[in-house]
Design a binder for these strands. Sequence first.
DNA 1: ATTACAGTTGTAAACGCTTACATTCGCGGC
DNA 2: GCCGCGAATGTAAGCGTTTACAACTGTAAT
Lengths: 389, 389
Amino acid sequence: MVTLYDVARHAGVSTATVSRVLHGQGPVRDSTRARVRAAIEELGYVPDGAAQSLARNRKDVIGLVCVEHTGLKPNQYDIESMSLLFYDEVMRGVEARIRERSWSLLITFVREDENLGVPLPEDEPVQSRLLTLSGKVDGLLIGEGVVPSPVVTELARRLPVVVVAGDTALRGANVVSADNWSGAHALVAHLVAGHGRRRLFHVDGPATAPDAQTRRLAMRSVIGAHPGTVLTGSYSGRFTVHSGEEAAERLLAGGGTLPDAIVCANDQMAIGVLRTLAARRIRVPEEVAVVGFDDIFPASLCDPPLTTVHQPMRKIGERACDRLFELIAKPALRPRVELLPTELVIRSSCGCPPGTLTRLPVAPVAAPAGACTTRTRAAQGPKPEKTER
Amino acid sequence: MVTLYDVARHAGVSTATVSRVLHGQGPVRDSTRARVRAAIEELGYVPDGAAQSLARNRKDVIGLVCVEHTGLKPNQYDIESMSLLFYDEVMRGVEARIRERSWSLLITFVREDENLGVPLPEDEPVQSRLLTLSGKVDGLLIGEGVVPSPVVTELARRLPVVVVAGDTALRGANVVSADNWSGAHALVAHLVAGHGRRRLFHVDGPATAPDAQTRRLAMRSVIGAHPGTVLTGSYSGRFTVHSGEEAAERLLAGGGTLPDAIVCANDQMAIGVLRTLAARRIRVPEEVAVVGFDDIFPASLCDPPLTTVHQPMRKIGERACDRLFELIAKPALRPRVELLPTELVIRSSCGCPPGTLTRLPVAPVAAPAGACTTRTRAAQGPKPEKTER
DNA sequence: ATTACAGTTGTAAACGCTTACATTCGCGGC
DNA sequence: GCCGCGAATGTAAGCGTTTACAACTGTAAT
């Protein structure tokens, strides 16, 4: 291994000078610089990252903790695994920012139980893995819901941490996420005000999932604001296609008239609903509209193409990274929650004519006082409410 | 920051003892161990990664260099971006292995020109970025085609390097890839021997893309082995959906009878072909069969579902990582090319009945003497051949 | 010649950890 | 009580950088 000393000896200068040439700082005579450059070139010297980190007390590395979904069939893509794209997009946003600074990105996946939102009972190893990780980085980006919040809090005491994507109720944490509230609000308003759909059925996520909760509350807010609009029922699913199918089956089994629209907490479940409806020859959107959330890739491919809400994942990654850099520079900064605007993606499952594709930026909607936005929830931390049936 | 010294002082022992407790090595009296553990706990000590790396002369980090496709519309998934999933799957395979050892994964993306296979004219920054990276890791995994081969060679002189996925002609490099030859062979044999398709049209990739080349040669080999089978023509595309559409338009514009089958060098182009054919009301597979390669997610969704060849990306990641660990342990190991078996995924675009879904492991097929497999190409390095029109 | 000073370069002390080696401890056998 | 010995612990020298500070150089003003 070629070290700084080798270069210094070879160029007939001191290590300090070599270091100065290497970083272009401090005054160095041109002739010396040239000599050092030549020596570096000749010996093929590359500085050792570990030694640099130690000496500078700064690693120029940030860590990203992602979810890894379990229970996916290996070697086989399906709609569920498509949701992984979210994290991959976030990762690309983060990486872009990091590259601009010539830092590096350390990635770790944490497995999540199929029962979305519930981490496996292996907190201990997760915690120790993340602690080890924290010794190798200057700051940490943590995907939503991957890590139990006490662990996040613990980590945040130790080094700058930003929680990425999804919606979170972590007290005093730095969070960058999509504006779920406004997105869901715009989506349901489009159904209600735009298409006159009055009788809504809700395919909800798990009661404990914070983003499902936000979306649910936004839907209720729209319903409340439009007299004559009612929630005919709801089903609490697990964010999977299968859950969506089951939800639709339950709904149909109940008999009675169909609702005007089925609002799903994510696209996977909306796709499940569409499948069941198609199997029963129920026409969408003529007999009932269906909408999702997230704008995963298959949403554009299903029949009819799904109206949904797009989350700016890449941008979330970028902003989270920016925020993390801020925190690394000034660790004393007060925690902040940052919500990025979503896009309403109108296709035709909502009742718009076939072929429609409109992408509407969603302006932030202030949650009415008392409503539970991310921000206020983070501050007040109320219990998740019981899902009605 | 809490250091080892702080812990030692707090526990009333030497740093050596703390280190021993930390790593469970060397004899330590139980009472001492307990005292040290308590001190660690109390102070919330986490070892500094940089210092450890420096002292151990080993970083426990490996680097992964991926392609980043450019020119994709931000905030919007499309079929092209789906191909990204390949790298993401590779990454997960790698990460799984790394985690087993409690190492870490450092990720870097390198942009690739839209003109697939041709890196942007920014070799210099790429090279310097990778050199810097090489100072931070113990070994490097490099995605195929991302990095100009001289740079790979240079890096490999410096530290263990494994080239991942795709097909490569790098001299003396360690490579882990899919067995493109056997996969393409099985696919075309299925068309020819299984369905009696005789007149084939080829939608090829760029002449310079090594995996396209391998697949092309495998196809020719099947044609050669089946008298009466002919290549009616070919088109050299750029691996994009658009290329596929164009290929089909050219084919149709030529007039004359349709071929029996259109063999595409990847799924994206096959999807493009399907679209154009659908627009012209040409029925697949009744009038012409269409097959792809890669088994990207949308392949299962298109109409008719695409018969194609699946590459074991996750496994490739795992094996590449294993190989890298071997090399790190024994840097003198001779370079080796390892080809992983593919799967023939039979759906219905080849002529099999609607609803078919058969996944057939492809046994390695020895390339006939003189044929250009990865291995021999790597050794002989012939020029890419001219694409016929 | 002397001095002052800016421009260069060298010296050596960190940085936080590991580990070879030296030292001490405790204990059984003499 | 002393010796010997293995077990437990301590000492201190690295690991490859950075960087504060000291030391030197050469130039121009005195």
